[in-house]
Design a protein around this nucleic acid. Structure first.
Lengths: 239, 239
DNA sequence: TGTACATCAGTGAACGCGCGTTCACTGATGTAC
DNA sequence: TGTACATCAGTGAACGCGCGTTCACTGATGTAC
């Protein structure tokens, strides 16, 4: 779909082409925002743009290709929100506050776009397998959190509350592989805690966004979220 | 759809009617198990049963009515799994082990039926609002966990690690309403911790089932889950 | 600068498909006398 | 016990719909000489 861009500047045609491709994604995103990923529909996109459905095939090979592009964009969207939140931190911010800032940015993003959150972190869209190159995008937000943890450990401001060697052997082995792959520089115990924290974060957001708290929580969801994250960090050994 | 049952025993006709209704749900569930709730399809159900699609309307008013019935059944399924797990516990079981037993039962159920888990706890099915009477079913598993907590507090074997009065005022108010509604007998602080625990539990299962852990976790998912729950309980004050 | 040609974004008609739902009906099952 | 009638599970044809995708095409945009 997208041609390999050479070093030369874009021609006029290439620019309008890219603009139309972006407009397609924007219109398609609107559908997803309103009704979720399963509701994405080429004919509706074409209708909203005043185009013929077949014209979309100049830009995307299929409905699934368009959906994939949207998913990548959403991962990038939440990834850059997290990166921006982290970039705004001064290096000597308290690790708990730093982590909370990014966590709140993530939650704010999700609460504002529940369908996109569902697209990325909820039930996988039926019959749809994200291709490999989405993985880099997915990991941006995870990396932000990971770097926060690594930095806090490196400076000695956080000492994880976990006994070395206390991991179940099979889990220990799995965590060692994770450390060799992505979580470089962490001990297996630290990696395990990072994943525990990750699931707690996703769980807190998903439970709220998918309405699995009692309805009364609706009066103070942000406060419950903050409590959840604070307690999670405290249990990990953050000051 | 279902007539109000009098006290008299069911007639032959009523029995075959109920049996067919159940067969419809069983066949429909098969579709959901294989492809998720969005894939539920009346014509496919009819086909698999050797029936005409229109005949299904003797049993369910619409596709959505059938889906609702399935959701209720799934909630009941996971609810009774949790209840059975709790019923197998002796009253003097260690609270941590008791909670872990039910949590593992929940996770086992979810791992075995990822699509059903997604139906209940993942992205809500597009354009579908569960009617009120599903709520009782949803709460069965939550109640099992809640009773475990209440019992552990009542016997004094668990003292929650939370300072009374430490809750944010708005959260405190919300929690008081929750206690007045469903979580009777708990303090607002205890209710908040119960919800934190609930989101951690859902998060741990959802992250695994929806594949948002690094792939290497696939080698020891149960062990990571157990670590997650154990640490959650420990942070709450379970011995 | 002007002409001839190539590229390619977008059109319009059509394809085959499967869906949920309706409606008048048939014929077996059950009921009343 | 036998007959007349009511109930109702299931049929079969049809409805309108919207979908993703294809294909031959047109005409504007860009390129080469």
């Amino acid at each position: 779909v997208t041609a390999a861009p050479a070093d030369r500047p874009l021609t006029r045609r290439e620019r309008t082409y890219a603009a139309t491709a972006q407009e397609i994604k924007d219109v398609a995103r609107q559908l997803v925002v309103e009704s979720g990923g399963a509701a994405l529909n080429l004919r509706a996109v074409a209708r909203a743009m005043g185009m013929t459905p077949s014209a979309l095939y100049r830009y995307f090979d299929s409905r699934d290709a368009l959906l994939t592009a949207l998913i990548v964009e959403s991962y990038d969207s939440v990834g850059s929100v997290a990166e921006a939140a982290a970039a705004g931190l001064s290096p000597d911010t308290d690790p708990v506050e730093a982590f909370l800032t990014v966590a709140h940015a993530f939650r704010d993003w999700a609460v504002e776009r529940p369908h996109e959150f569902g697209l990325l972190f909820g039930t996988p869209v039926p019959g749809f397998e994200p291709p490999e190159h989405t993985l880099g995008s997915e990991l941006r937000i995870a990396n932000v959190l990971l770097e926060l943890l690594t930095a806090a450990l490196d400076t000695g401001r956080v000492v994880l509350d976990v006994e070395p060697g206390s991991l179940d052997p099979r889990l220990h082995a799995a965590m060692q592989e994770v450390c060799g792959d992505k979580f470089t520089g962490l001990t297996p115990e630290a990696a395990a805690l990072a994943l525990v924290c990750w699931s707690a974060l996703l769980g807190a957001i998903a439970t709220e966004v998918f309405c699995h708290y009692p309805p009364q929580v609706g009066a103070a969801p942000r406060e419950l979220f903050e409590l959840t994250i604070r307690r999670q960090l405290r249990s990990m050994g953050f000051a």
